[in-house]
Computed example of a mutant assay.
Amino acid sequence: MNILVIEDDARIADFLGRGLRAEGHRVEQAATGPEGLAMARQAARAAATDGQPTVLVLDLMLPGMGGLEICQTLRAEGVALPILMLSALGAVEDRVAGLRLGADDYLAKPFDFEELLARLESLARRGRELARQAPNRLEVADLVFDRERMQASRGGRPLPLTAKELALLELMMSAPGRLFSRERILANVWGASEDPLTNVVDVYIRRLRSKIDEDGVPPLIHTVRGLGYRLEALAG
């Protein structure tokens, strides 16, 4: 099982890391909200290609960005990784808030390690079911993205795309018609560490558009001035 532990308490994080690795699981760890969000997005992209989902162990109180905000952001972006939320706040309203924002399970601190492990195993089984349901082939009009081969084509013609261009295209094709802000694209494709003032998104959109929307074919990448970009086939 792949497990991403997002926990800022060094003592708890160390306990979880050692215990889960001793059980034979692959564990990655983050100590801040922004770092954890970036790693969760990367894990979601990996799950889409290798079919091995990551279960998130997410603390509620984190520096930089709280667990509830991380959970809400991931669900709003369509990330379906299983999430087990941890918190010292065990009141009913706290559990309800976490579950309503998209958490799959909730465990109050202090917790029994065996119970934590059983809950993670249950979530992993659910995650594998979701992974099997995820489409390996994305299509918008005559544009096709093969997630297994990490290749794209339009009208049957292979597109010579770089790794970043492929990641950008996969993001936009995963939700045809959805408006993606520059900030969301930057965070999903380049990660939270990238300078938010950079124009790299606009540069890559131009590069992607020159390869996809060339030779007089109907354009699929559309700019919404001041807001961002969307990929869709327009009627007519």
Rank of each mutant, 00 (worst) to 15 (best):
V201M: 09
L130W: 14
L116K: 11
A97I: 00
A40N: 04
E77D: 13
R100Q: 15
E93F: 07
R21G: 00
R157D: 14
E183A: 10
A38I: 05
L84T: 13
N199R: 11
Q52L: 10
G191R: 02
L197Y: 09
L58G: 02
R157T: 11
M65W: 03
V224R: 13
S210V: 06
L4F: 05
L159V: 06
K109V: 09
T162D: 15
P53W: 02
G98N: 08
I12Q: 15
A22T: 11
I3Q: 05
L68W: 03
L197H: 10
D215F: 03
L116P: 10
A91V: 05
E114K: 14
E129P: 03
V189I: 14
G228V: 08
P135L: 09
G90N: 08
L171H: 05
V57Y: 04
E115M: 07
R26P: 01
R209H: 12
Q151P: 02
V189P: 03
R125I: 06
E170S: 05
G51C: 11
L58E: 01
G98A: 13
Y204L: 09
A167E: 14
Q42V: 10
N199L: 11
L143D: 03
R26K: 15
L58K: 03
R100P: 01
E170V: 00
L159P: 08
D112H: 13
R21V: 06
A134D: 15
L161M: 06
I83Y: 04
T198G: 15
G78C: 14
R182V: 07
P176W: 02
R45Y: 03
V140D: 01
Q133H: 12
P158V: 09
I70G: 01
D202N: 10
P196T: 08
V57T: 05
G19K: 05
R75S: 09
V57Q: 07
R207I: 11
M39H: 11
